[in-house]
Write a protein that binds this DNA or RNA. Sequence first.
DNA 1: TTGTATGCGTTATCAT
DNA 2: ATGATAACGCATACAA
Lengths: 348, 348
Amino acid sequence: MSKVRRATMTDVAREVGVTAKTVSRVVNDDGPVAAETRERVLQAMRKLGFQPNLMARNMRVGARDSTVGLVIPDMGNPFFGTVAGGFESAVRARGLTLIVGSSEEAADRERSLISTFLARRVAALIVVPSADSDHRHLRDERAAGLPLIFLDRPAAGLRADCVVSSNREGARAGVAHLIGHGHRRIAFVGDLPALYTRKERLLGYRDALAEAGIAFDRSLVETGHDHEAAAAAVARLLGARDPATAIFAANNFAATGVILGLARLGRTDVAVVGFDDLPLAEVLRPALTVVAQDPAAIGQAAAKLVMARLDGERSRAQTVVVPTRLIPRGSGELPPPRRPAEPEHHPR
Amino acid sequence: MSKVRRATMTDVAREVGVTAKTVSRVVNDDGPVAAETRERVLQAMRKLGFQPNLMARNMRVGARDSTVGLVIPDMGNPFFGTVAGGFESAVRARGLTLIVGSSEEAADRERSLISTFLARRVAALIVVPSADSDHRHLRDERAAGLPLIFLDRPAAGLRADCVVSSNREGARAGVAHLIGHGHRRIAFVGDLPALYTRKERLLGYRDALAEAGIAFDRSLVETGHDHEAAAAAVARLLGARDPATAIFAANNFAATGVILGLARLGRTDVAVVGFDDLPLAEVLRPALTVVAQDPAAIGQAAAKLVMARLDGERSRAQTVVVPTRLIPRGSGELPPPRRPAEPEHHPR
DNA sequence: TTGTATGCGTTATCAT
DNA sequence: ATGATAACGCATACAA
């Protein structure tokens, strides 16, 4: 059995005894139509189950599709899901549809998705860059007026609009919070060193230390890009001479791993602040203090940029920084042990 | 500054001194082209930055877009995100692009999204129905051969393909697990009563009780559609005469709320099994035993159905049930208290 | 108020 | 091996 042909404007027009153009007028509320004609057209539309073909319309009208392409590293990650949701609800009123693809953090997947989206003539392109991608090939698109926005991490080799969390300031605030509660041996457990977010957050960590006059100690910086790696880092950090009394976990994998590592060691006395909120943060004991990002706001900011660009705003590339917010819940307010095993230095 | 016109096949053809059709042949590897001509066309394509217009191609070729429309209730929910990811990676090789919209659990949003997708002439439509929607209006589409698949919950008023978790059997297994560890007072905390998944899981709960010869007790069934409601339910269940010694939390909001409620009461002796896994399940103390769903497999199953339908499979609507898996982690293996406060019945 | 001619960018069909 | 022409479904510009 073959696919039934769908009714077109011409079909509707023939049914009524008018021209396609008249049907078009009815459909788009464009130009004058006699009330009676309009009624007959509407009836015929219902009878034939007519639905306008958006592809044909867009092609005729603008050579630009009414879709926005979004490339994210992982659809299962609620952070990006919420970003996408925030974006979608902000552009919906404008009739834009979201096309999403997942790059799986692979530069070549990202590139192929971008090609697909460009081939569809998306009205705008939004990319969360994967680790080692390069975006110089998008220069012409941007020059041609395609709204092009990078999320969470900036573009590589290209000046373009960008929306990021206040990584540095957020991390600074989180670490300052720990310092304010008396800690001076504060560990940093973060992403792979190459990642933009890790670098920014590490800068914020160092800012906070510097403000408090605490010397930076390389041995307190660990990498935990997954649960197990972070848990292992915790064991090292706490097993060292002059161990950490507090841990700043610079992303939510790290935070989860840190919590897991502490639980395995049976330690409930180590202060923890995480970057990025977790759904179960308040259920943990102690509840997890975090520097929360606002993924929905990131999506909305991107939407605002996209719509401004679509409206012809030609200003130079701008970077929007979305604020983070410290949420104290318990784990970040634990004090350091009374007398840390701080070996008194006895000069002889 | 106006948008720069993009190069078309005709532009490329003129540049080389051939016809658009020849360029088309090169682009699609269709029909014979002289090696030299082909080379010159490729060069011109690069020079002009030509990218084929998928909209025009799809319109000409099939009147079917190479996209699949997916309607989910909430993009920020990792369950649906992972479903979408599983689907996308399974259809990618076939050149299908995913279009996603979020219904926010509202029937009218769902309907308007479906209209948009149909207007785009999606190649297939996948819907996670919101609570009170009706799908009879899709009958004609389905009859016309549009692959139409419902996820997580069945369609309302329409026989169509459907992919669901093994809700009933999964719940049965989870509750049987608790029974196997000695519990007989097992509470059920679930969604709003109207929801399909709640009903199915409640059936499974009753199946397990029946198997073990335990009478169903209405007072042990509670509704917790958000954290606080579930936490409050826990207080009621444990405060009652003859209180529950174990809780089956029938979705992850309920599970989170139950954990929160127990923590607030300082209770660590109540066994808990959750339906649907949580990212932090193993970090909790005790780690949370769950009946895990497999969202990626659900997405893949949907993809398989879609592709079979696109390949002309005309069999009647089928329902695919994706198995769940019990993951014991600690909370579900807690024994009931030695002598439950079971008032001995002394006949006088 | 309605119709006609034309074109968007591509491919199908039939020629050459 | 390549070209000419028409057509996909719709909207623009203008005419009637």
